[in-house]
């Protein structure tokens, strides 16, 4: 397990190098002179040359790439063209916002999805199975924006249970420390604010978590049904084990491998920017940050945003692989 972990982490190196090459290339793949593109059509030749000089665009590509990686290693992601401030210092609140939302969305998706899948498999062809799978089918097919709007209409406007958008009450902003507002509220020991922060999370988490929940439920069910037919489950029954032990100890762990794959992929997708949900709920996450940068042609921000999203994917894959080997002793690449 330890050797496997080390090997798996070493395998990250080539992946990370490949990632930086691709993000580095983005600026150079833009048709025409990057400096000209960045400055716009009305820029004078002197301005373009000055920018080329400052961006190091006159150097050979390999030197430029070297400088880019050197900057990255020092935590320097460049400067935003729009705000003129360091990207590395302004990007964190967006990342934190997305992480917080993804965490609660996946918490909702995994808890409900896995349990619904288990019970559906346990009571195959029962009314619960039928309803859960119908619900899952609807969940997979539902357009997120429609679900989000319906939630806002019903739970925010009509019932007034939850706020319709934002991360906090705009009149009373938090003194952010980690930028995870729930966590920050705990740190401040400000419990009413914990509740408000959680309330802000409810509707976007459900909107974002519904599709993963449905996929996870269906995957868990089919995986469980497969495992429940296997010989070792019969052995466990022959030992005199009850249904709970059979399902939760022996079947679930075997059924989890494909489920974890799906959970990992879905987490990656959500972290990679749920632009639609973030826009509808005015959630200042990484998806919206990059989306705004694209509208503004803020290339350094786009570049950094893509790099960070790719990095998150790589890390999630690493976690998923390590979980595989924690669950299954046979997995040692």
């Amino acid at each position: 397990m330890f050797a496997y972990t080390i090997r798996r982490i070493l395998m990250l190196i080539p992946v990370l190098i490949g990632m930086t090459i691709i993000t580095f290339s983005i600026v150079h793949l833009i048709p025409g002179n990057p400096a000209q593109v960045i400055l716009g059509e009305n820029a004078t030749e002197e301005q373009v040359e000055a920018l080329e000089e400052s961006m190091g665009l006159n150097e050979p590509y390999i030197v430029q790439y070297g400088l880019y990686v050197k900057d990255l290693l020092q935590g320097d992601l460049g400067t935003s063209l729009k705000t003129k401030s360091e990207i590395s210092s302004e990007i964190w609140p967006y990342i934190a916002a997305t992480f917080e939302l993804t965490f609660f969305a996946m918490l909702f998706a995994v808890f409900i999805g896995v349990n619904a899948g288990i019970i559906s498999a346990w009571r195959q062809n029962s009314w619960f199975d039928f309803l859960a799978m119908l619900f899952a089918l609807v969940g997979v097919s539902m357009p997120i924006f429609w679900l989000a709007l319906m939630e806002q209409w019903l739970f925010a406007q009509e019932l007034g249970w939850f706020p319709a958008y934002g991360r906090q009450d705009s009149k009373d902003p938090i003194a952010a420390i980690t930028h995870f507002y729930v966590l920050d509220s705990f740190i401040h020991l400000d419990f009413p604010r914990v509740i408000t922060s959680l309330k802000h999370l409810v509707l976007p988490s459900i909107a974002l978590g519904t599709i993963p929940m449905a996929i996870i439920a269906r995957m868990t069910r089919s995986s469980m049904l497969e495992v429940m037919k296997s010989d070792y489950i019969r052995t466990v029954r022959a030992k005199g084990a009850g249904q709970f032990l059979v399902v939760y100890k022996h079947a679930l762990r075997n059924a989890l491998i494909p489920v974890i794959t799906v959970i990992g992929l879905q987490t990656g997708v959500l972290l990679g920017g749920a632009i639609l949900t973030e826009t509808i709920f005015s959630w200042p996450g990484i998806g919206r940050y990059v989306f705004d940068a694209i509208s503004f042609r803020d290339y350094p921000v786009i570049q950094s945003g893509i790099l960070i999203i790719a990095f998150i994917f790589v890390i999630i894959n690493l976690i998923v692989d390590l979980l595989y080997s924690a669950i299954d002793p046979r997995i040692k690449y």
Binding site: D231, Y232, R234, T235, G240, N254, I327, P329, R330
Partner: peptide, 19 residues
């Protein structure tokens, strides 16, 4: 089961939980 009557099966390769 397993206490007064125990059972073994044909497929030893798949009759034990791999995990």
């Amino acid at each position: 089961r397993g206490n007064e009557i125990a059972m073994i099966f044909q497929e030893p390769m798949t009759s034990l939980n791999p995990l």
